[in-house]
Amino acid sequence: MSEALEPEIDVEALASRGVDLEVAERVAPDRDIAVKVGDPLVQVQNLTMKFGGLTALDNVTFDILRGEILGLIGPNGAGKTTCFNAMTGVYKPSSGKVLLEGKSLGGLAQHKITRQGLARTFQNIRLFGEMTALENVVVGLDARHRTSVGGALLRLPTHVREEKSAIERGMALLEFVGIADHAQFLSRHLPYGYQRRLEIARALATDPKVLCLDEPAAGFNPAEKEELMQLIRTIRNDGYTVLLIEHDMKLVMGVTDRIVVLEFGKKLADGAPAEIREDPRVIAAYLGEPEDDVA
């Protein structure tokens, strides 16, 4: 039923870009999603976020459709990160709702929201510095474990099996984002670009239905940015839905299926990249912003 909307996977083209399909296969999400491809997976409804007198997010409504890459763009301070925080439970919204697969996420603890399938990365990298790259990813796999203190103390067979499979999957994810050769490095010793990729791997480890990326290409040079966008496309091709905050207009245009534009906390526009590019309000909002300005 949904296959028609699934993007065609061109194996050779992917391979020429260095995408290992076997790895992608192992990484692909293996859980049920109650929503068909192309239907709203996340519904953000009238989301408002106030900080004292400042309304950082003003009655914002948009949907994220299953299988798409949705861009969330807007000038600095427009409220993009705040929108992420309100969605993922970091902030309690002043009003409005966020639904995942039609179910409200309101009032859930943050880790429960993540376990429901909404994962994110951070604009300012927040890895566990004293852990290796692999350990960072395995922390993201926490929800897959059934055993806890008892199992670990007694090294029950179930626990051992879970540990081994967690390491295997963690390595597969590191391979997927292309940093497996650095698995044993403390994450604070990783080069900057690798840290950004590790953040993505760690978020993917939570087995999300929607992956929210907060300016994942910040601080990258154009070549690195292009590589990262390839990765994001691959992630989508593997069956994830992606919400992408990105400051660089040109980049967003190339990778997203749809775009939501925020300005001063309000939704300015919403549509396909081509429409957004022509929208005079969007042009006005971005006027005077240097092309490669990084938030």
Binding site: Q110, H111, A119, L127, F128, V139, G140, D142, H145, E163
Partner: peptide, 27 residues
């Protein structure tokens, strides 16, 4: 045994960045 399990990892993750740990699904 605890250290080399999800329990130890959760503890160290909490020590390193409690908010990030929570957002990565760690109770």
């Amino acid at each position: 045994n605890l250290e080399r399990s999800r329990v130890g990892r959760a503890w160290i993750a909490i020590r390193e960045d409690e908010d990030a740990a929570e957002i990565m699904g760690v109770p």
